[in-house]
């Protein structure tokens, strides 16, 4: 029989852990399907950025992607960036594994785009990389006199402003220079790993605020899914899930490792205390989430708030 060719797009350069996961996936899939499926990995945005790859997955001109999930066709997809869905890695595993409230919601929303969500690749908690440090950094809501670069999403802007930052939008490509020259005093939107890999020379402080989870989607186009036999679908799903699940363990390790590497590099790493962290989480859930009702739809916010209230009662 003719083999199925999978073009698999990724965002990171060769050698990056996420790209390595893609390469390992390729190897395992090709072995397990005994040549019925051939995978070609295109790292480093070679086939376009994640919005483009997502769009093409939806059209069926791309087969698979391990990418950020963009929201241009459905703002509700931003729900995965809602701040403080989890506050520690045990909660991350709960939140980002199949069957969870978030996973089921995202799976449903993504399937409306004719794309299948196979799993979440978790990169770690996002924190603040800063070039100057306000004294009251531990206080959830107080004004911090910091010009913070946020990704171009309502969720980040609203959350950062509720947390007491002034926000600025700078294209990611210009972020490094902007931090260096003072166009921005810091940024939200990246894990300790990303802060170490790309910004260690320019930031002076890294605040472990566990704001949100930086995670990417293992995605496959419906068109590809229809082409595959039931057996190969199962193989691909299982291998993707294996790496997705591994990524959560690796993320926790990497987070600690890169916090230490940042320290070694001379970056001051500030950890919020458990008590502070719970206050930040409470503030996000009670103050910020309701403000996002119009963006994410009232139904979504209401049901997610209900789910979290139930959880708080349980605890």
């Amino acid at each position: 029989a003719e083999s199925v060719r999978i073009n698999f797009a990724g965002m990171f350069s060769p050698g990056h852990p996420v790209t390595n996961a893609q390469m390992n996936f390729k190897k395992e899939v090709e072995e397990a399907t005994e040549g019925r499926v051939k995978v070609r990995v295109f790292p480093a945005n070679q086939l376009g950025d994640y919005t483009q790859v997502f769009e093409e997955l939806s059209r069926g001109t791309m087969d698979m992607g391990l990418i950020n999930i963009p929201s241009q066709f459905d703002p509700r997809l931003e729900v995965m960036y809602l701040h403080y869905l989890a506050t520690n890695y045990a909660e991350v595993r709960e939140t980002y594994s199949p069957g969870s409230y978030l996973f089921t919601t995202m799976e449903g929303l993504i399937s409306e785009q004719k794309i299948k969500l196979l799993g979440f690749e978790v990169d770690g908690f996002g924190g603040f990389g800063l070039t100057k440090l306000p004294e009251n950094i531990g206080n959830a809501g107080s004004s911090k006199n910091i010009l913070l670069r946020v990704p171009p999403m309502d969720i980040f802007k609203t959350a950062a402003e509720d947390q007491g930052f002034q926000t600025v939008s700078v294209p990611f490509a210009e972020l490094y220079t902007s931090l260096q020259t003072g166009v921005a005093d810091g940024w939200s939107g990246g894990s300790s790993t990303l802060n170490y890999l790309q910004f260690r020379d320019v930031i002076k402080y890294f605040v472990v605020s566990n704001n949100f989870i930086d995670a990417y989607g293992w995605l496959a186009s419906d068109k590809l899914w229809k082409k595959l036999s039931a057996k190969d679908r199962h193989i691909i799903q299982e291998i993707a899930l294996k790496y997705a699940s591994q990524s959560i363990d690796v993320a926790e390790e990497n987070d600690l490792k890169h916090q230490k590497l940042l320290k070694d590099k001379g970056v001051t790493v500030i950890k919020l205390s458990d008590e502070e962290l719970q206050l930040w989480a409470k503030q996000a859930r009670e103050e910020t989430w309701p403000k996002l009702r119009s963006r994410l739809t009232p139904e979504l916010i209401d049901s997610i708030q209900k789910a979290y209230q139930a959880k708080t009662v349980e605890n």
Partner: peptide, 17 residues
């Protein structure tokens, strides 16, 4: 035509693509 159907919007200002 595809763009009309897909009805995408910019992420901040929600301007139709």
């Amino acid at each position: 035509m595809w763009s009309f159907d897909a009805d995408g919007k910019t992420s901040r200002l929600q301007i139709p693509l």
